[in-house]
Nucleic acid binder design. Structure first.
Length: 453
RNA sequence: GUGGUUGUAGCUCAGUUGGUUAGAGCAUCAGAUUGUGAUUCUGAGGGUCGUGGGUUCGAGCCCCAUCAUCCACCCCA
């Protein structure tokens, strides 16, 4: 058969894996630095754990796993009727009782709800695992991709909100990516819906204003008016959308807009709190930032790489009652997520990966025949024992072939031990990049490479 | 899920109004060079033209379906 990959998935070759690991390690070390602890959860969950948590759109994008044993003759009738429901767009347990993880937050909430008696709060965990979405793939969008999440649960303190902003900035400085970190509060968006006299149209309003930078203010107003927002409401939303200037300026304008709205004022306090911990040029208050996931209740974050059109490379926010979905009330939390695959694409486009990531083998031993190989082999093993990674060329071949192998694998040194060298108890070490070569005594070989490293 | 784009050698791509045996560059392999690699020269291998149907005397080219790809929308990391 002809080999192929499922839509939206990829294989990762050695260079790619090394570069991806570089991103993972950078993020992990900073998570650890801030006191987060690792957690891993299964690739698939009971389907009801996931359904209904991400909105209607999210439910459609969840990969459902077909149950085994659907061909069991004794269940034939039941399964046929249940499958009729699937055709109507409903998923039933008889057909599917498991689904692939859609993000890391809901499985985490499930874990916290199951273990809330045992955990020490505030509980800080990080998680770096793949998630799956049945989306249509395109640039920066995959059906299998990794998220790196960090969350704090069990505390209402805004200190965590500020720390997460700090983590975002720190990670992207380490990776060398120039970003814009945007913040907003769901409370402010709620308040907007209230003062615009459309408290029930919160969803409609956020979806529309989220598109502002894409379709422009006229089209946004058009969409809102079609969705039944009053002229008076439109006027207020328009004023809201045209907030400009520095963070301080925006805050004072918001203050005047929400003088009589408690929720709005609470949202402003959340923003002000974070801003006092950060330089104003690192972070931008963006009142049009909405974010789709509907469990957020407070601060929300989004990270975009400047100069690369790829969507957001990170996002997160505060949710005051995530575990309530699993019958454990009042465990608030806040968290952020990094999209590793998009970060990778950005770094490739901007050529930001360190060049030495691809070096693995330090030295290639040439194969000059059976007896020479037998003589040289123990010296290679000695290098390996000292932590220097080496390879022996697999067969006797023309030198130029062995050289080219070293070149293609980016091996910096070549060690040649032939009959001449055996007699002298030495070897030739050639550095490929410079072309320099020198004679090295065999008992000084380990030392030679230790110094070079 | 909706709309569009593209699919020819390992890679990047040519291929005329439908006409005999489908080409190039790069890469690979072999030789010029039996202990010195990015140069040069010579030669070789490699394709059921994404897949399956259809129209035609004849299809890489036209039609239909299907799969994959990239893009836009929706949504999102």
């Amino acid at each position: 058969m002809k080999p192929s990959l499922p839509q939206g998935t990829r294989d990762f070759g050695p260079e790619t894996v090394r570069r991806r690991n570089y991103i993972f390690q950078t993020i992990r070390s900073i998570f650890e630095l801030y006191g987060f602890q690792p957690l891993e959860t299964p690739a698939f969950e009971n389907i009801e754990t996931l359904l209904g948590k991400y909105g209607d759109e999210g439910d459609k994008l969840i990969f459902k796993i077909l149950n085994n044993g659907l061909d069991n003759p004794s269940k034939h009738e039941l399964i046929t009727t249940e499958f009729g429901k699937v055709l109507e767009g409903k998923t039933t347990r008889v057909i599917s009782e498991r689904a692939l993880r859609y993000d890391l937050t809901i499985p985490f909430a499930r874990y916290v709800a199951m273990n809330h008696g045992k955990l020490t709060f505030p509980y800080k965990r990080y998680q770096m695992q793949p998630v799956w979405r049945a989306d249509r793939p395109q640039r920066g969008r995959y059906r299998e991709f990794y998220q790196c999440d960090a969350d704090v649960v069990g505390s209402y303190s805004s200190i965590s909100d500020a720390e997460f902003a700090q983590i975002y900035l720190e990670v992207f400085v380490c990776l060398g990516i120039d970003i814009k970190l945007k913040i907003n509060s769901r409370k402010i968006l709620n308040a907007l819906a209230q003062v615009a006299n459309a408290p029930d149209k919160f969803q409609v309003i956020t979806v529309a204003i989220d598109k502002l930078d894409k379709i422009g203010i006229e089209k946004v107003m058009e969409e809102l008016s079609q969705k039944g927002i009053s002229t008076q409401g439109l006027e207020i939303i328009k004023r809201f959308l045209t907030l400009v200037g520095s963070n301080d300026k925006k805050i004072s304008q918001l203050n005047s807009l929400f003088v009589n709205n408690e929720e709005g004022k609470a949202g402003i306090r959340e923003l002000v709190y974070i801003l006092q911990y950060l330089d104003s040029n690192q972070i931008e208050v963006d009142v049009t930032l909405a974010r789709g996931l509907n469990y957020y209740t407070g601060i929300i974050y989004e990270v975009k790489a400047t100069g690369v059109a790829i969507g957001s490379i990170g996002g997160g926010g505060r949710y005051d009652d995530l575990t309530g979905l699993f019958d454990v009330p009042s465990v608030p939390g806040v968290g952020i997520s990094f999209g590793v695959d998009r970060i990778y694409d950005v770094m490739m486009e901007l050529d930001l990966f360190p060049k030495d990531l691809e070096v693995s083998t330090r030295a290639l031993f040439f194969n000059l025949g059976d007896s020479e190989a037998k003589f040289a082999f123990p010296y290679m093993q000695l290098l390996r024992k000292n932590g220097i990674s080496c390879e022996f060329y697999h067969e006797q071949a023309k030198l130029d072939k062995q050289f080219r192998y070293a070149e293609r694998k980016n091996i910096p040194y070549v060690v040649i031990i032939g009959s001449q060298e055996i007699q002298e108890n030495s070897c030739l070490v050639k550095q490929l990049q410079t072309g320099d070569q020198e004679k090295v005594a065999l008992d000084g070989l380990v030392n030679y490479f230790t110094i070079k490293t």
